[in-house]
Structures are given as C-alpha cells and as structure tokens.
Write a protein that binds this DNA or RNA. Structure first.
Lengths: 147, 147
DNA sequence: CACCGGTTACCCACTTTTACCCACCACGAA
DNA sequence: TTCGTGGTGGGTAAAAGTGGGTAACCGGTG
C-alpha cells in the first residue's frame, strides 16, 4: 500500500514529461512495475495511480452497474481520459496534452502526494483551490478527526 | 508510545538542520527507526512525529472518505507539507525550506515535547501565541480536566 | 505502395541538490 | 586535566532533476 506525501514544484518540459520525485518513488510498490495510470481527478487536477493501486480502484468500478445511468456516466468520465504511462530512464511519465489541458498545467506543475495517489496541479490553480475553502485547517481538523 | 516533554531552544543551521535533543530522543521507540515525519501543525508551528506515531495518525486519515470534499481538503493540507526525514549521524533532521517558512522559523527554534509529538516554533511566535490566550492557565485547567 | 510529417521512446549530457562524513567547541563528570 | 556526551558547522561525492538529440514508429496522403 502506497503512502505518498509531500508537495513538489517541478517543471514540465516541452514534451509533456513530468519527473516523479524520488521521495514519492520510494513508496511505489515493485508490483507497479514502474507503470502509472493518469486520469482526471476531483477538482481541477490529475490523479496518478501506480498500477497496483489503480487495479484496486478498477475493481471497485467493475462492481458498478452498467444498467444504472448514473454509474455509466461515472465510469465514462473517469475512464475517458485515463492513460497508462511507464517511467522512462529518468523516472519521468509522459502526460498527454489533453490531460495537461484539462488541469490547466503548462510549464510548472505541483506534485502532491496523497497517500494512495499522486495529484498533479497547476500551482496557481491549487492556491486558488485552497482559498475557496471557507473553513480553516484547524477547524476542519476538529470536525474531521475524532481526537 | 512516546511521551515527549520539555522545551529546548536550539539553533537551525544554514542547511535547515535541527538537532533533536537527546532528552527527547530517549523516548523515541526503536520502531521509529530514527525516522521522523514533519508536517504543519495547528497554529503556526510544525509537528514532528516519530514514524511509529505517524503511522497511527496516517491510519486515521486513510479512514476518511476521498469523495467527501471536506475530507479531501483536510488530507491535502495535512499531507502537502509532510516530509519524511531520517536522523543523520549527528541526530539531526533536515527540514525543507517550505516548512521553516510556514512556521516562520529562521535561526533559532523552540522545540517542545508534547507527549506523542514534538513541536517546532519560532520562539517569538510562541510567546505571542501564549499572550493571545484570554483565559488563564488555572481557569482553562478547571474547564478541561475533570479532576 | 512509397513518401512524409508528427509523435513517441530511448539515450546522453549538464546542473543542482542532497546525504554523508569529518571536525570542532562547550560542558560536566571522573 | 582528560574523557565522553551533546550541540554546531561545513566540504564533497553521489543522487536527483532538467533539457535536448535522434532513431523508431504510426497515420495520413499522393
């Protein structure tokens, strides 16, 4: 089980390649075989799953009902942009232009470790996202954590 | 289970390294493997958890729901600044510049033992924090403790 | 079917950052 | 005084991040 953490501001090169920080790579299971699945996330960002974590997620999607319109919509939207990518020799993934466009990522990217997944953000978009949160971190913590 | 206590005013060197006082190290479980996780705390300070204590906390975060926007915000904010650091040969942890900035720590740091975690403060910020507390220690004690 | 433009994957090279090692100083105990 | 422990500072080799060249691959077109 992965436990990604930390944020890293890296650059995206002209070929759409993004380096996976070594601090995050350390937590990738060998089962993932250096393979990642990138897809749209919640809010305006991308989710990057190591293959093994993705498989777990995929299983729960399989359990959805193809006869339920809401489920169909969910499955289509999640899978529409999903792309598999293997690390190159320099530990980078190549992100298709469509996905970068979706998240509004251009030259710089904020890489966020969130336990089982990695998130990719336009740094400016992320700052704005934080601003839209009405409650303070301390206040949310109090209501979210039991203790 | 750790039981850190006491306060220590230490210096931060130009590489962002902070020595963990030997008085506190004594209470770190061997399970922690000389590894600490540093992240943002409540109020303007940093929390430092030995690995074993962190794992307890991480488990409670995993139990949160990734589909709940509030929970997502909490997870992102908590993990954004989280960094793992292993003690060097001189029993120091290296704190990334971002984290020091967050807490406003520069050349001197106040190290506080608070049972399961260690807190890092800018000494001046800590003094101001104490001043902002309207109630006296005695009065708070009465409302907080049963006995 | 051959050709051509665009994309992808792999390789190599440069720069910056990090981790590790060694040295020094202060202080208290023997 | 000498030794050991605890705290501070800095040099350097190794690792990590960035950028770009080129050959293979793929699809579309004349």
């Amino acid at each position: 089980m992965s436990s990604f953490k930390g944020s890293y501001e890296y650059s995206v090169d002209s070929k759409g390649r993004i380096n996976i920080p070594s601090r995050l790579r350390k937590y990738v299971s060998p089962d993932a075989n250096d393979t990642f699945i990138v897809t749209r996330g919640y809010e305006k960002c991308l989710f990057v799953y190591p293959l093994d974590e993705w498989n777990r997620l995929e299983q729960s999607i399989r359990d959805l009902s193809p006869t339920n319109p809401k489920h169909r919509f969910f499955m289509r939207t999640l899978l529409e942009l999903a792309t598999e990518s293997q690390l190159d020799g320099q530990s980078r993934v190549t992100i298709p232009r469509e996905l970068l466009q979706f998240a509004g990522i251009e030259n710089d990217v904020l890489i966020l470790g969130v336990l089982e997944r990695i998130e990719l953000w336009n740094p400016i978009v992320y700052k704005e996202y934080l601003k839209t949160q009405a409650e303070s971190y301390e206040s949310v913590a109090q209501s979210v954590l039991q203790k």
